[in-house]
Amino acid sequence: MEKFTRLTSVAAALPQENVDTDQIIPARFLKTIRRTGLGEHLFAGQRYDADGRENPDFVLNKPAYRKAGILITLDNLGCGSSREHAPWALLDFGIRCVIAPSFADIFYNNCFKNGILPIRLPREQCLALMEDASHGENARLTVDLEKQEIHRPDGEVVSFEMDPFRRQVLLEGLDDVAQTLKNHEQAIREFEARPSRAWVPSTKQPGRPQSVIGSKGEQA
């Protein structure tokens, strides 16, 4: 995973609440077995018309925002489906930082796993940053994760909160799986050996054949 330390970029504003993961990447583009190549389908429903032509009014199609590295929205960004294709599509487009007053849980987690920094800021501050973003190339924002600061074009500094563990993972670009196996393998083994876990059956072999389907005991 690529580290996230400091980013200076144009920001694109999408002043909508509940920007769901179906909007970020519609389901018909999930038929891939790779993580890459989804950028062209990012926000496909809004970005293109029925014939696949670009909608010139959509922010990411405007010349100033075609290389935006930051996306700002209103509340509950990333609600809906758990698809990690949403952060993959953002990343593939070039977006490394998303800013909103609030996020849906799964999307928020998925961002960190892909080197995308999600920042929660009060709505008024998001609106102020959207105002900056409206100036396009003339108003780049700098996001500094080390200092937990956003530098606005006018020099004003906006601080943001960040969980220290997640911050470290992003700053160092750590591989979660390797970390867990390195630090916790022994604890996992001990947990698995607990007598209280003896009741948990295996999924390898059914204990008996299927006899009921619904809750009222119909024979199959």
């Binding site: 758990s82 990690e84 952060p87």
Partner: peptide, 15 residues
């Protein structure tokens, strides 16, 4: 529900 990176984490570590 979890994302695909977490799917990988569970496959590898069961945690």
């Amino acid at each position: 529900g979890i994302g695909t990176s977490e799917v990988e984490h569970v496959l590898a570590t069961q945690t």
